[in-house]
């Protein structure tokens, strides 16, 4: 292929490769790369309102903003984000594995598989803000789900959103509903790629469905599982819309535990970042937090890349 292209294409044609790349790279440089440099730059400054100048000023503070990140408050934010992610991810991966192995099983032959797949994928396309708001309205006092709970003996005045465990569980549940369909489809594509004869041979040898799953499906699926785990983790770190709307941006309810910080139980890292940028104008802390996030997602992406590359050998 490479040879024929070189032979046939006249000299100079290949410069069009560069020309066609211009729009992408101009936009990338202006709207991603320059902002990234700005973000890093601001992480070394304090941005505050000066009473003498009657305006915001920047003061170089070196690594002060980074040092401030190593605090109980930041740890709490990451802990909140991770617990919300884990609570959603565990049922997500379990159900997805189960469903994917069923959908891909030729002998099981699920009828209307296309319909089921379409239904479980639907929540992934729904506006997270509207989906979160929907759940808030339905689970809050006077909402239909609250009314159903009342018929099982819950007090009419009980407000789920004043309590840590119910609030976190609801946010995790929303994430589960929104993402298990997507994961199912990804895993299914992986299972479909497994040579059918392996399953048949195992069956002839009398392996049970569970054994086939554990000894054939899972080991072959490992690279895709790692891919799903890490991309989901990267997505989890970015969790914002759902907890933002469910807690009205507050991250409430408040924590009263060993951390003894004043960080609410459902406030995520990105909720804090958004607050720094557009509300408190605390650009220094926002910058340092962004750099930290870049670092974390960079490492995670690198792991995926290495893992997938190793798998191809």
């Amino acid at each position: 292929m490479n040879e024929t292209v070189k032979k046939h294409s006249k000299l100079g044609k290949d410069k069009w490769g560069y020309i066609f790349l211009i729009p992408f790279f101009v936009v990338f440089l202006v709207f991603s790369f320059y902002p990234l440099i700005q973000t890093i730059y601001f992480s070394f400054f304090d941005h505050y309102f000066s009473q003498t100048d009657f305006d915001y000023v920047n003061k170089f503070v070196g690594l002060k903003n980074y040092k401030a990140l190593f605090s109980a408050g930041t740890a709490r934010l990451f802990f909140n984000t991770m617990i919300l992610w884990v609570m959603g991810f565990i049922p997500q991966i379990l159900f997805s594995l189960l469903l994917a192995s069923w959908f891909a099983n030729n002998r099981l032959r699920i009828r209307a598989a296309g319909f089921f797949k379409a239904v479980i994928y639907l929540p992934n396309l729904i506006m997270a803000i509207a989906f979160g708001m929907m759940f808030f309205t339905m689970f809050s006092r006077g909402g239909p789900v609250h009314q159903i709970f009342e018929s099982f003996g819950m007090s009419k005045d009980y407000d789920l959103f004043f309590h840590i465990a119910p609030t976190r569980s609801l946010i995790a549940f929303i994430n589960f509903i929104m993402w298990f369909g997507n994961t199912t489809i990804l895993l299914m594509a992986g299972i479909m790629g497994i040579n059918e004869s392996l399953f048949e041979a195992a069956e002839v040898d009398g392996a049970s469905q569970f054994q086939v799953f554990r000894k054939i499906t899972l080991p072959i699926l490992k690279p895709i599982l790692v891919y799903v785990l890490i991309t989901s983790l990267i997505g989890g770190i970015q969790m914002y819309d759902v907890p933002e709307v469910v807690t009205k941006g507050s991250g409430m309810p408040m924590n009263k535990d060993i951390f003894s910080t004043n960080v609410p139980a459902a406030e995520t890292v990105i909720m804090r970042l958004a607050q720094y940028i557009s509300k408190s104008k605390n650009y220094g802390s926002a910058g340092a937090l962004s750099v930290m996030l870049l670092f974390i997602t960079g490492i995670l992406s690198f792991v995926v890349y290495k893992f997938m590359a190793k798998d191809e050998d």
């Binding site: 790349l21 992408f24 990338f28 202006v30 709207f31 991603s32 320059y34 902002p35 990234l36 440099i37 700005q38 973000t39 601001f42 991309t231 990267i234 770190i237 970015q238 914002y240 990105i270 970042l273 958004a274 720094y276 940028i277 557009s278 650009y283 926002a286 910058g287 962004s290 996030l293 870049l294 997602t297 960079g298 995670l300 992406s301 995926v304 890349y305």
Partner: peptide, 24 residues
């Protein structure tokens, strides 16, 4: 190199550059 570069930036969350983007 361009191809690998685009794949590498694929995973960067938009929020990471949002401070600079907002200021810009």
């Amino acid at each position: 190199a361009v191809h690998v570069f685009i794949l590498a930036i694929m995973m960067i969350p938009t929020q990471v550059t949002s401070l600079g983007f907002y200021r810009l």
